[in-house]
Amino acid sequence: MSFSTVTVMDVPFIKATNQEFLTQLQTDIDQKKRRFIVTANPEIVLYAKDHPEYKAIIKAADYITPDGIGIIKAAQTIHQPLPERVTGYDTMVALLEKANTQHLRVYLLGAKPEVMAAVVTKVQQQYPGIDLVGYHDGYFKEDTQILADIHDKQPQLIFVGLGYPKQENWIKQNLTQAQAIWMGVGGSFDVLSGMTKRAPKVFQDAHLEWFYRLLKEPTRFKRMLAIPKFMWLMRKEKRA
């Protein structure tokens, strides 16, 4: 399946529901395809706008998904609606569930040491069918051993939580090490570990996860300013 895309500020987002995307990823896994997934929110799109090299890297990905209500709103603004949000966290969890039932090989990279330790414990307890072939926290000075491990173990799913732009840069540089689904997952390990709480469903359904995070972490205020800036630029672009 080749998804059509909707271009938001020169970034092409796949036009697919969560289920359609997961169906395609299952096909990719079955056919042993190498895939690079970027889950992009307004903050990432704004960063790409100001950093051409990073924009080129994410545009080279196989799939860019709309991770953020701001992207959905922006697509509506240009009258090219996207079906729904396809978040990094939900996609990661759905792939872990697939890996559990299909005994897939998984590699985890990123987060603080204590977060990764908690994630590993959770995966081993909650997804006993997963073949967890390796893991490493995100605090490494050099990655020679990590890459050797990935090359030797040939995981089928590789989740990289180094935060943007580092995770996308790292994935792009090292894609050839394994015929796998490579996915940047940002702070998803923090949520999976239980150390960071995801917004309750009522906030998710109202598209107010950003507000819940702001209530829990007021220091995120500066980062949250990306959303109104992004929407202002989209409206400006539309008028132009």
Rank of each mutant, 00 (worst) to 15 (best):
D10F: 06
P12D: 10
F13C: 09
I14N: 01
K15E: 12
A16P: 08
T23V: 13
L25Q: 13
Q26L: 10
T27A: 13
T27F: 09
I29R: 09
R34W: 01
R35V: 14
T39V: 09
E43A: 05
E43T: 05
I44R: 03
L46P: 11
D50M: 04
H51V: 07
E53C: 04
E53N: 15
Y54W: 10
I57M: 04
I57D: 01
K59L: 09
A60Y: 02
P66G: 02
I69L: 07
G70Q: 03
I71N: 00
K73E: 11
K73I: 10
I78G: 04
P81C: 07
P83M: 12
R85I: 09
V86M: 03
V93L: 14
L95C: 01
L95F: 01
E97S: 12
N100P: 08
V106Y: 00
Y107T: 01
L109C: 04
G110D: 07
G110W: 05
A111W: 05
K112P: 03
P113S: 06
A118E: 13
A118D: 08
V120H: 08
V123D: 02
Q125R: 14
G129W: 05
I130M: 08
L132E: 10
V133K: 09
H136G: 07
H136R: 15
Y139V: 11
K141D: 14
L147E: 13
A148I: 03
I158C: 15
I158T: 13
V160S: 06
G161C: 04
G163M: 09
G163F: 10
G163W: 08
Y164K: 12
P165T: 08
N169V: 12
K172W: 11
T176R: 10
T176V: 12
Q177F: 10
Q177S: 13
Q177T: 15
A178I: 04
A178K: 00
A180Q: 05
I181W: 02
G184R: 10
G186R: 00
G186L: 02
T196G: 00
K197C: 06
K201P: 00
A206L: 15
L208D: 06
Y212Q: 04
L215E: 01
K216W: 03
P218Q: 12
T219H: 15
F221C: 07
F221V: 12
R223G: 07
A226D: 15
A226P: 11
I227Y: 14
P228C: 11
K229I: 06
F230K: 06
M231F: 12
L233M: 12
M234C: 14
M234D: 01
K236D: 04
